[in-house]
Design a protein around this nucleic acid. Structure first.
Length: 715
DNA sequence: GTAGCCAGGAAA
DNA sequence: TTCCTGGCTACC
């Protein structure tokens, strides 16, 4: 033993675990070639399983592995798998100067496993602290986080940050209530309306693991249907998890569950409860006191015991996509869970995403749909206003609203509230020729022109300013906005129907419900309040804006938003009418008229398959400064059948716009390449990207690139 | 990420 | 010879 070490240990009575680092230091100094876990002289280690495998809480990809630490005797009892710990990590050589140790800060981690010995050949440092004896990271959650990290080419630590809420000591001290016995199986209720509905519930109640893509009938029963699926699962003695796109949807299912099962059987996990409350609820789930969870996307990781069902509602809503690294999508996470836990799976929506259609096409899930006659009976009448109608429509030109829409509003207001769906504010209006209505396009890249300030025209794709526009079709010089703004529409409608109250629902102020009395309800997509008894009519006014987006998902998105509004309207038999201002020949418009979102998704899927687009192919985006992207692409060892598209320049972020992850900072020019692989090669692709990224990060100096699996905005 | 190691160059 | 910086690697 070196004198340095002797002084240190000798000077401190009952040396704390940290002192072990000093011993380790001396061992290193001595450079004695020795085998596996060192014996710690001067400090007692746990008698059994003295090695703790720890996941250090650092997102860096090249640290995405476990580190072994020695377990001091005094931490032996608390240092159980799953607990939070603190360890010394950082530059290894903990120097001692003037009696103090330096370097290597304390960092958080999770104890993953206790072992008899380490496979690490060097000397082990000791656990510094067990933060709390509460085991928060169970085996299943760890396996799930691992799978999600692999699926998204991210680090385990990043995923755990999403999966395990921050600790609150007070919440931990509070005991959770004891678990309730399973309830009895519910009656199918509104599930009777679906051919396979009662069978699906029956399977859940009897311990089965059915997997279904459920195309929900329009109307308000979906939340009760979800609640019954949860209740059926609980009846089998298993747990259930429902992930919803927003707080309003959570509140509906929460209410339905409370009505069906009373209080205490389910937990609501949303971000808006404070951290302590949130952690307390999460703990109650983790401890097995509560067997069912409803929540927004963070709940996708909820550690429900003995999972029997995972369900997601409206997977097309982009709030199911987690914005934090590695940006997993709730649907995909629940798919992984269903596979891992062999539990039931339910993907429900009024609409149908291409991904949902694929689950059915591949045979992984069964369709859960109502017969056509039921659909027709539940859906409103949908009428379209196309270009031709508009051109002929004197009233539309004068008042910016087609006469059919006026008629529908007037008629609807005699029977109840009328919903008016308008583009979201901040949705910069696209411009069209005032004469012939041809969309105004950039003369350089053919991107859509949009109005910036009062007269300032700019291309939405390349950002170039346009000052001498004239229409290439008819030679006209006058432009008009293609879409009508929300406030303006509200004002105009208010003036036209002075006796009727006008209510608005949008970003800042979202209305939850409106009464069934006549009123104009102006709303942006996704913020539509539910009307008591349903709306008498709906006007969908943003068709052009929705469909002219240069995005692969433009059609699907438009249909989703229209269906989201139209599903709140009374059935046709009760006079419910929807007017959509969009070209009736377009595929999403036809799908709305026929109320056939599944057919639409199936056709889209076939097309994407042909084009080699996701979700049939797996795709990843690599973005960053041109040189960095090029360098990354040179370095990455892609699977054999991978294909690199691009790189191409990304649109420049306009100044003042909040920067999204993966988008260039304002003023910087970035490139983006897409990498795609055929079906079945997704894992190889993410592994390759992850390892290339890890090597880059490990040596500093190289400019970082962003890697995004399943990029949402491929155009 | 970050400390420490080592190599290579400038300063003395 | 000494000191400093920059690049590189390990971190248990």
């Amino acid at each position: 033993m070196s004198s340095e070490n002797g002084q240190q240990t000798g000077g401190a009575e009952g040396a704390p675990p940290e002192q072990l680092a000093l011993i380790r230091e001396s061992v290193r100094k001595a450079k004695a070639p020795r085998a596996k876990p060192r014996t710690w002289r001067g400090a007692a280690l746990a008698g059994e399983l003295p090695v703790a495998r720890v996941l250090v809480d650092k997102g860096a990809l090249h640290l995405d592995r476990y580190f072994d630490y020695a377990v001091p005797e005094e931490l032996d009892a608390d240092a159980q798998p799953g607990v939070r710990v603190r360890v010394r990590f950082g530059a290894g050589r903990h120097r001692v100067r003037e009696g103090r140790r330096e370097g290597g800060g304390l960092i958080d981690g999770f104890l993953v496993e206790r072992l008899a010995e380490s496979d690490y050949s060097g000397p082990l440092a000791a656990l510094a602290q067990v933060v709390s004896p509460e085991p928060v990271l169970g085996e299943e959650l760890l396996a799930l986080a691992r799978a999600v990290a692999d699926r998204y080419a991210g680090s385990l630590a990043d995923v755990l940050q999403l999966a395990v809420p921050p600790r609150s000591a007070r919440a931990e001290r509070r005991p959770s209530p004891g678990p309730l016995p399973p309830p009895s199986a519910p009656a199918p209720g509104p599930w009777e309306r679906y051919e396979q509905g009662p069978a699906f519930l029956g399977s859940l109640a009897s311990g089965g693991a059915p997997r279904a893509v459920w195309n929900a009938l329009p109307g308000p029963h979906w939340s009760e249907e979800l609640a019954r699926a949860v209740a059926a699962t609980l009846a089998s003695g298993r747990g259930a998890l429902v992930v919803l796109p927003d707080g309003r949807a959570v509140a509906r299912v929460d209410a339905a569950l409370t009505e069906l099962l009373g209080e205490g059987r389910h937990a609501v996990l949303t971000a808006d409860a404070g951290p302590e409350k949130r952690y307390a609820r999460w703990l109650a789930v983790r401890r097995g006191a509560v067997r069912a969870v409803v929540g927004t996307r963070a709940a996708m990781f909820a550690p429900v015991r003995d999972l029997g069902l995972v369900a997601v509602w409206d997977d097309g809503d982009d709030s199911h996509s987690e914005p934090h690294a590695p940006q997993p999508h709730a649907r995909e996470v629940l798919l992984l869970r269903a596979a891992q836990d062999r539990c039931g799976f339910l993907l429900g929506s009024w609409n149908c995403t291409v991904e949902a259609a694929q689950l059915v096409e591949t045979g992984w899930a069964r369709p859960l749909v109502a017969g056509r006659e039921r659909v027709r009976a539940a859906a409103p009448l949908v009428r379209t206003v196309g270009d031709g109608d508009l051109a002929r429509d004197e009233a539309a030109r004068a008042a910016r609203l087609p006469s059919l829409a006026w008629q529908a509003a007037r008629e609807g207001l005699r029977h109840g509230p009328v919903l008016v769906q308008v583009p979201r504010r901040g949705y910069v209006p696209r411009m069209a020729c005032a004469g012939c209505r041809a969309p105004a396009r950039c003369r350089h890249c053919f991107g859509p022109l949009q109005a910036q300030g009062s007269d300032d025209l700019r291309c939405a794709w390349c950002g170039r300013e346009e000052d001498g526009w004239h229409c290439p079709e008819c030679g006209g010089f006058r432009l008009r906005a293609q879409v009508v703004g929300a406030r303006r529409t509200a004002e105009e409608l208010g003036r036209a129907f002075p006796a009727v109250p006008v209510r608005t629902s949008g970003r800042e102020h979202v209305l939850d419900t409106v009464p069934g009395t006549p009123a104009l309800v102006v709303s942006t997509p996704g913020a539509e309040p539910v009307a008591e008894g349903g709306y008498a009519a709906a006007l969908l006014l943003d068709g052009w804006a929705m469909l002219s987006r240069p995005d692969l998902r433009a059609g699907e998105d438009a249909l989703r938003r229209w269906i989201g509004a139209a599903a709140l309207v009374r059935p046709q038999s009760a006079g419910g009418t929807v007017v959509v201002v969009a070209e009736p020949t377009l595929r999403p418009v036809q799908a709305l008229v026929r109320w056939d979102p599944v057919g639409h998704a199936v056709r889209e899927l076939a097309e994407r398959d042909e084009l080699g687009f996701p979700p049939v192919s797996r795709m990843a985006a690599v973005s960053g400064p041109g040189e960095a992207v090029a360098e990354f692409l040179r370095a990455v060892e892609l699977p054999a059948r991978a294909e690199i598209l691009g790189p191409v320049p990304l649109p420049v972020t306009p100044p003042g716009r909040p920067r999204r992850p993966g988008a260039p900072p304002p003023g910087e020019h970035w490139d983006r390449a897409l990498v795609r692989v055929p079906p079945g090669n997704g894992a190889a692709l993410t592994a390759a990207l992850k390892s290339a990224q890890a090597t880059r990060m490990a040596r500093g100096g190289s400019i970082p690139v962003w890697v995004r699996i399943d990029p949402p905005d491929i155009g």
